[in-house]
Design a protein around this nucleic acid. Structure first.
Lengths: 331, 331
DNA sequence: TTGAAAGCGCTAACAA
DNA sequence: TTGTTAGCGCTTTCAA
C-alpha cells in the first residue's frame, strides 16, 4: 500500500509528471480542463505530497524550531502555546529542541536545525551560553535566529525580551511605597550568570537607591530552582535579621518561597510582604494576594514568533530588540 | 557558503561518492586507511550529512511526533519532558503537534505525521475523538501509534493509561474513611465525553457504593476547565446543600476549586475535605495539605515513549494496555 | 500549453 | 575493496 505519487497520477492520465506538479500548484500555463482533471484524479487517488521530497528539493522544510533551556511548568507552556499557534496559522510545524541547560546540547540543537532544514529558529539560551557563535552558521546560511527571554548579552541579533530592570523597579517601588519603613527588603533571583538575572538585580539596586536606601549585596539571594529558593528562605527567615519584604524575580523562586511561608505559617502580607515578577498564573492560585509585574510568556512567545515570521517572509531584516509590556497587577 | 556534501569529499580524494558514504558509515568493506583518510577530510571540511536527503532516501526521519489536545501548565510539561528525554537519548527529534481539542486538527496532524516521515507517534486524543480511523493510515504504513492518557475507548491499539477508576476509588475511599459521616461527597470531573472522565466517574460510583452510600449523579460535576470548576464550586457552596467533601479528578479542576475556596475563605480540611488525582506539583504549592493519588505525567510520558521505541525497534508488536502506578500521597 | 531531463544529497544493489 | 548506476519524489529550466 505504498503512497501514491505524482508519477502515478501522470501515468494514469498519460501526461508528464511535471505537468501534474504544475497543475497541483495552480501554474497558469496548464489548461484549465487538464488542471481540473488532474486535481480531481489526485483527490480521488488520495494523493498527498511527500514532504520529505519537497524538503530535499527546496532545501527547507516548513518547520521552525524552538530551542529552550528547560521544560518547566511555569512560563514554558505559555510560550510554547503562543509559538505553536503562530506556526500553525502559517502552515508551519514546530520542532522542539531541549537544551537541558547544557551548552553542548544547545550546540547540537543548532546543528540539528541546520541539517534538518528548519526555516527559522527561536532560542532561549542556557545559563552557560556566554557566547553564541554556534548560531552563526545558521544565520549565515539564511536561517533566521530570534532570541527571546534568555538572550545573549554582548552580541547583536534579533531579540525579544522582558524589560527586566524596569519590571523590577516597578515591583520594588511598590514594595517601598506600600509599607512603612521596611526593615529589610530582600530579593530572590535566579542564576547570576543569566543576563535576565543581572538586569533584575540592577533594577533592584536602582529601586533601592532611588528611594534613598542602601543596597546590600547580601540582600540579593541567588537560587537555581524552586527548592533552593525554599531552603534559602527558611534559613533566611530563621536568621538574626529576617526580611520584612521580598522581591521574587520569577514564578520559579516564588513557588519555592511560598512553600516555605506555608511551612512556617506566615501571614502574607502581615508578616512578610511579597511582590513578584510572574507569568500571572501562580499568584492567582494562592490564597494570599501577591501583587506582581506580569511578564506574559504567551505575549513573549507571540511577539517572538511574529518577529521570526516577519524575517522569514522578508518583511524585516535589521536587528531589533523588542520589549514586551509588563503591566502591574494587584488583583 | 553552501554546505559540503559527500560529492565534494569524493572529488577531493578522487574516489566515488558511494565509497565516501560507506566509509562514513564504517562499512567493513572500505580499507582502513582510506576510511581514515575520508573521515579525517570530512571532519576537516566540516561535512555534515544532509538530513533531508537521508530522510527522502530512507523514507523516514529520525523524528517522533507528539500529538496533544492541549498545552496546559499541568501535566503537559512533565509528559513532554519525559518524552523529550527518551527521544533525545535515542537520537530522535520531537515534533510537537497541537490539536487544540479539535478533531479536524487531530486529523491534519495525523496526516502531517504521514507526509513528514515521522517514525512513530504518541497521541493523546481530543474530547471529540470518538473514533480514530485517521490514525489507521499511519499504522498501516508501518508508523506505530501509541495512545496515552486520553486513549480510544472501543478500539484496540497500543495504549498507556492511568488506571483512573482504581485511582479514583483509592482517593474516595480515603475520603470516606478519614472523616465521620460526611453529609455530601461531590466529585469534580472533566469533559464527560472523555473515557478518562468516564472511568473516574465509575470509580466514584463504585467507591460510594462499596461504602454503602448512594451515588447521586447530581453529585458529579462536569467542568471543562479551571474557571468553570471555580464558578461551579462557588454556586455549589452557596447552594442549599453544600458538600462536606470533594473529589477532584485532575489538577485542572483542583486549581479552579482551590481558587474558589480562597475566595470564600474556607478552611481545608476543617470546612471541607478535599482529595485529588494530581501530577503532584500543585498540591505541594498550596498551604493546605491536600492528599492525592499521584498520576505522574512524567511517568506516563516515560512509559509511553519506551513503549513506542520498543515498537520502532521491533522489540514489541502486539497491542498492550499498560497502566502506570498511582501511589497515594499524603505529605 | 506540455514534455523531457536534470538534479536536490544520499545510499544500496550490482559490477568489476 | 572500490566504482557504476539508479532512484527516493518532487520541481524547474529548457525545449518543443
Amino acid at each position: 500500500m505504498s503512497r501514491v505519487t505524482i508519477k502515478d497520477i501522470a501515468r494514469v492520465l498519460g501526461v508528464n509528471p511535471s505537468t501534474v506538479s504544475r497543475a497541483l500548484h495552480n501554474h497558469p500555463d496548464v489548461s484549465i480542463e487538464l488542471k481540473a482533471n488532474i486535481k480531481q484524479l489526485a483527490e480521488q487517488m488520495g494523493y498527498k505530497p511527500n514532504q520529505m521530497a519537497i524538503n530535499l528539493r527546496n532545501g527547507k522544510s516548513k518547520t521552525i524550531a524552538l530551542i529552550i533551556p528547560e521544560i518547566s511548568m511555569f512560563f514554558f507552556p505559555s510560550v510554547m502555546k503562543a509559538i505553536e499557534e503562530e506556526a500553525h496559522k502559517r502552515g508551519y510545524n514546530l520542532l522542539v529542541l531541549h537544551s537541558n541547560d547544557d551548552v553542548q546540547r544547545e550546540i547540537q540543537n543548532a546543528e540539528i536545525c541546520a541539517f534538518t532544514g528548519v526555516e527559522g529558529v527561536l532560542v532561549s539560551l542556557t545559563k552557560e551560553s556566554f557566547e553564541t557563535s554556534h548560531f552563526l552558521d545558521l544565520s549565515y546560511s539564511g536561517v533566521p535566529v530570534v532570541y527571546f527571554d534568555k538572550v545573549p548579552n554582548n552580541i547583536q541579533g534579533h531579540k525579544v525580551i522582558v524589560p527586566g530592570k524596569e519590571a523590577t523597579i516597578q515591583a520594588v517601588e511598590y514594595l517601598i511605597q506600600h509599607s512603612e519603613n521596611h526593615q529589610r527588603i530582600c530579593g530572590f533571583f535566579g542564576d547570576p550568570r543569566l543576563s535576565i538575572t543581572q538586569d533584575r538585580v540592577e533594577g533592584f539596586r536602582q529601586a533601592l537607591t532611588q528611594a534613598n536606601r542602601l543596597f546590600y549585596i547580601q540582600d540579593a539571594f541567588f537560587v537555581n530552582n524552586s527548592q533552593k529558593a525554599e531552603e534559602t528562605f527558611l534559613t533566611l527567615w530563621n536568621s538574626a535579621n529576617p526580611p520584612s519584604a521580598l522581591f521574587m524575580m520569577s514564578d520559579e523562586v516564588l513557588a519555592g518561597v511560598i512553600k516555605a511561608t506555608h511551612a512556617l505559617g506566615l501571614n502574607i502580607p502581615q508578616d512578610l510582604q511579597i511582590v513578584a515578577i510572574s507569568d500571572g498564573y501562580l499568584p492567582l492560585l494562592l490564597p494570599q494576594k501577591i501583587p506582581y509585574v506580569e511578564t506574559s510568556g504567551y505575549q513573549l512567545g507571540k511577539t517572538a514568533a511574529f518577529y521570526l515570521f516577519d524575517i522569514i517572509n522578508e518583511k524585516k531584516t535589521e536587528f531589533e530588540t523588542i520589549s514586551i509590556e509588563t503591566p502591574f497587577r494587584n488583583a
